[in-house]
Each structure stands twice: as C-alpha cells, then as structure tokens.
Write a protein that binds this DNA or RNA. Structure first.
Lengths: 329, 329
DNA sequence: AACCTGATGGCAACCCCTTGTCGTCTGTTG
DNA sequence: CAACAGACGACAAGGGGTTGCCATCAGGTT
C-alpha cells in the first residue's frame, strides 16, 4: 500500500486537492473547521507531504550539506554536532560529506549535491577561491575555518589566539619557535603562520616554518624530526592530531616535553586532555562554529533576498594550558 | 539564470525532451550520433538532471540515512567514515542523523526522512523491536551494533570478544569483575552483560553488573564510585569513553590502575591509546561495520526484489592490551 | 431588497523528468 | 519495386504538490 497522497486526503475529506495543500502550507487561507477536518483525515490516513514533490516546484529542499576536509579529524565532531543541532532545530536535514583532503573529491561532491540541497557549509575547504565563488553563485555558501571576501564565514579568532600562544611561550623564555604547517591549500595554515610570525616579530622571537604536513597523528614523526633539526625550543603544530603525533615521536627519540621542547596544538580535541603530557592547545567553541555557520546559511536560504551582507564572524579562542609547555630545564 | 532543464537541452539540440531523457537513462534506445550530440549540448549548457523530479517518479533517491545514537561518540567516526565511503562509491548520498540517545528523537527523525531516503542504517538503535520492524516495513533497514531476527545486521563478534576479556583478566588472577552497563535500551549492553556473565561462569569468576550509565566520560565518576563499592578488582566499562571517565575518577581517588584495579573498555577509540595508563579495550574493524552495513542496504534497495535473506554479519573483534590491565600489586 | 466585500475553495497549469504507445523513416528482402 | 521489419523519436500522461485566477457564497451595508 503506497503512501497516501494529497489526492487521497482530498477525496476522503470531500474537498479539492488545492484545499488540502493550502491547509498545510498556508493554513489561514482555509476555514478553521475545514482545516481541522482535513488534518484529522490526514492523520487517520498517515499522510505526510512528499518533500520531493514540494521541492520540485519550490526549489527548496530543507536540506543543507556540510562538507568537511577530513571526517576522521575529531576536531570536526563538535562542528558537526553544532551544525546538526541547528539544522534540526529548523527541521532541516544535514547531509554530511567527506572531502578526504582532496579538492577534487570536494568539488565533485559539491556539484553532485547542488540540485539537492539549499546550501553548503564548507569546513576548511581546500578549494581555490574561484571555485568557492563559483559555487556560491549556484547556492548559498558559508565557510568555516576560512575567510574570503564577499562570502560569509565563521572562524575562530586566530590572530589573537596565535598571539596568546607566542606570549605564553615567550613567558617561559623561549626565543625560537617552529610552526609545523598544515596542507598547502589550507587557509588556516596560512593564517596561523602569518599570525605566529607577526606575533614573533612583535615579541622578538624567531619563528620558523616547516611543512606542509597532512595534519594527522601518523605524520607527526616526520614533522617532529624536521622540527628538531630547526633547533627550535618550542613547536607549534597545525593541529592537535599532528601535535600528538609529534609528542609520540619525541618520546621515542627521548626528547622530553616540556623540559627539552614545548609543544602546542590547535583545536583542543578530546584527546588533548588525555595524552601524556597533556597538550597545551588553542581551543574555542567549535560547536558554535557549526551552529553559527548553519544559522547564517539558513538566513541566506530564507525567504528574504540575500541582503548582500556577508557576515564574517570570528568567535573567540582560548588558550588551554596543560603540561606540554614550560620553561626549558 | 535558472538551471537548464531537459527542455532547454531538447530545444537546443532540436529533439524531443523524451529523447534527451532516454539519452541519459537508457542510452541504447537512442542513435549514437544523436546521443553524442545531446550530450555535448547538455555539457555546454551545464545540464544536470534534477534528482527530485527523478525521485518523484522512480521513488529512488540515491540517498541513505545513517542514524547514530550519539554523534559525539568517537566510536562512530569510523563507522561513519566506512559508511560514507561505501555510499559514495555507489554515488549515494549519506544523510547523517544524531539521535542524541533519545528514542523519541530517533523515531521522529526517521519518520521525517522516510519519504526522502532509500533506506536506513541504524547505529546502536535505542528503539524497541516493534518500532524497528515497523520502520523496516517502510524502508529497508540495516542494524549496526544490534541484532533482531528477520532484520539484517552488522555487529562485532562480542560473545567471543567478551570471553577474551574475561580470560585476559583471569590470567592475571582476577576473580571478581564488575560490568558498568550501558543504557537500558541498548542491545549491546544486554549482549555484553550476558556474554561476560557466561564467560565468568565458565572460568569461575564472579561478575557483577551496575548501571545503567550513559556511556560518556562525564558519567565515569559515578560509575567508578559504584564500581569501587562492589569490591571488584577489575572493571569492564560499557565503552572507552566511560572507561576513560572511570580512570580519571580512580586517579582522583588515588586508586591505582592497574595495581589496585584493572580497567577494560570497548571500541578502541583513538583516545584509548593516549590516556594514561593506556586503556585495554576490545576493538574491531569499525569502519568495516559501516561499510558492510551500507553494502547490505544498497543490495536491499537495489533492483532485485529483497530476497528475504536478512544477512546477520558478525565481524571479528580483537583485544587490544595496554597498561590499564594487570595483576593486583 | 439591492449591492458590495472579503473569505473560501475549485480549476488547471506548472515544476522536471520518465515511460508506454504509436507513428515514421531507413534499410532489407523477395 | 512493393512490402515489411526494426530502429528511432515524438506525444502525452503521469508522479505529488503548489498557486494564480476566478467563481461562489455568506455576511454586512445602505
């Protein structure tokens, strides 16, 4: 027995299909008594409007896609959770897409979804600017962990956060840092590097950079070895996963943390609190990033014409100090 | 400028819309030269078939939904990843749904998605059996981490795994274990409990159970306190998160792991390797669970009539021994 | 009582694509 | 050269719902 349609409801209620349709979509166009009658019949039949038929005409699907650069990165859990929650609150469905650190995959997946979703939330997109602009021409887009003029975005306030990191390290007397850079096409990597560098200049520290590294724990060994070669006394890794991988390698090589070298990460993932020593890291309200991003997206997909405003939101960061940083012994 | 439709392509190519449609959906019904012509025009125009219009008629959406009991549980990351990968390989879209440990939310979300997806993969569903059967009547369903006769499922082989755990603990001379149970309506909790219990009987160990506990690190404190009261020398927690929470609490209370008490978890999440001491846990190929589940689901949604076969797959587990287990000192 | 107004609901076109049916044209066969 | 088979493509009817337009009707006005 197929799902009942608006026709079945109309027949059972003795009204026209249009009346049934209006009872659901613009209730005040229909007499209250008729409406109640229709609702009760619909409930009896177990009628539910078919979202596809609806989307066909309206072009609105009540669905948004969230694309993340690497779904296995715990950092995204919170983002995903915030986004999912916000989407659900508006009865939107969240489609999750994993770009696997590949711009190609990312782009193809997005294009595949264009006809099916109302907009995109892109997390740490690895796509070049022009692609992003093009996609934004097809559907509303909100960037997370990336900024681009004329596109709305939500990021954590990294400039200030990086400054905090450098200050924190400087306070322990460190004079030479090295930044283990993230992927080449990562906006965050560029941003963090320049923020660290200028903070270093301001505070009179030398800041080197090596990389790029894929920000996973498994790439920490290569990163650690490279870092040691620079002679820096403090390592700032592109994210916590990389930092954890680095600390493992350092332990293997009997380099003590923080007595010989300090390590700092980004993201404050769950594991940062569990590893030994605990990882000092720059955290922030990641769930809020996801939430706010979807929030902005839903406004843009809303009935109002896109107002031309492209909010660029920067949420505060906080340096979570644990045991991986300290003075050299 | 709206997306080009089949009509635009037909007009530009000088053929009927049906010809364009068939060129895409049943290519051998159309002359090769005409077909190529249509394809090139379509490419020029940037035409892509509208999946909703297609779904309207065919009822197939090329979308599957994955519902997880709690999206913040790292254990699901691998499941999600495996599922996403498998879905993508068949050009299916994966919709991710978070049930937040609430049967109500889970059910509502599923019902909302019924018209939009081809099937469901349910991870550790908290729904009662009859709900699951009912949902399976509407759309194909594959269960993960739960078994129910007549429904296909993918689980990790826990009976044997639990036996391994008990053997491992027995080999250290433990004679009294306590299982910190997961949520009341969790099939896994029931399964683990009975497997641990029968393994205990077989090997001559006393096995207690306390709980239920929400399997998050934050609930570890209550669980740890309860476990201590039982006087057991080994704690088997419902999952790694709970185990980690327990170990934290034990550290607070100056109970040494493993000298005073041993701790075992389930899932082998990333963090199990990072905490101190490293957590002994029952792992398995979680990504495979997600992959196989989607695989089965796609077969069931495929053109073949559901063959009545409901594969119940059990994948192997492996006990990952770290430092949280040992003999009492 | 004649007239006006606003509320109500029906008709039918449309959203984009698929598909059963049927006509047409090409090439083949006797 | 006529007749025919087969390949191809056009027509039109949905699939489920929305919406502009119009007819109707009840209630209110003068």
């Amino acid at each position: 027995m197929p799902r009942p349609t608006i026709y079945d409801v109309a027949a059972a209620a003795g009204v026209a299909t249009s009346t049934v349709s209006r009872a659901f979509s613009s209730p005040n166009r229909v007499n209250a008594r008729t409406r109640e009658h229709i609702f009760s019949i619909a409930a009896d039949l177990g009628y539910r409007p078919n979202p596809h038929a609806r989307a066909l005409l309206s072009g609105r699907h009540h669905t948004v896609a969230m694309v993340v650069s690497d779904i296995t990165n715990p950092h995204y859990f919170e983002l995903i959770r915030g986004a999912e929650l916000r989407a659900r609150a508006s009865e939107y469905t969240l489609v999750l897409v994993n770009a696997e650190e590949s711009p190609r995959v990312e782009y193809d997946q997005i294009q595949r979804l264009v006809p099916s979703v109302d907009g995109f939330v892109l997390g740490a997109s690895r796509l070049p600017d022009e692609n992003l602009v093009q996609i934004a021409g097809q559907r509303p887009v909100v960037l997370m962990s990336r900024e681009l003029s004329r596109l709305p975005s939500v990021v954590l306030e990294h400039t200030q956060g990086c400054h905090q990191i450098v200050e924190h390290l400087a306070s322990f007397g460190h004079q030479h840092l090295v930044y283990l850079a993230g992927p080449r096409n990562s906006w965050m990597a560029t941003t963090r590097w320049s923020a660290l560098k200028s903070a270093g200049e301001e505070l009179g520290l030398r800041v080197d950079r090596i990389g790029p590294f894929t920000p996973k724990a498994s790439h920490g060994a290569a990163a650690a070895d490279g870092a040691i070669r620079t002679g820096a006394t403090a390592i700032v890794a592109h994210n916590d996963l990389l930092a954890i991988g680095v600390m493992r390698r350092l332990a293997q090589r009997s380099v003590r943390v923080p007595q010989d070298v300090s390590v700092v990460g980004f993201d404050n993932i769950f594991a940062a609190d569990l590893c030994t020593p605990g990882l000092t890291t720059l955290g922030g309200a990641h769930a809020d990033v996801g939430r706010v991003a979807v929030d902005i997206l839903l406004q843009a997909t809303g009935p109002l014409q896109p107002s031309g405003a492209s909010p660029q939101v920067a949420l505060p960061t906080e340096l979570v100090v644990r045991e991986s940083t300290g003075a050299r012994a």
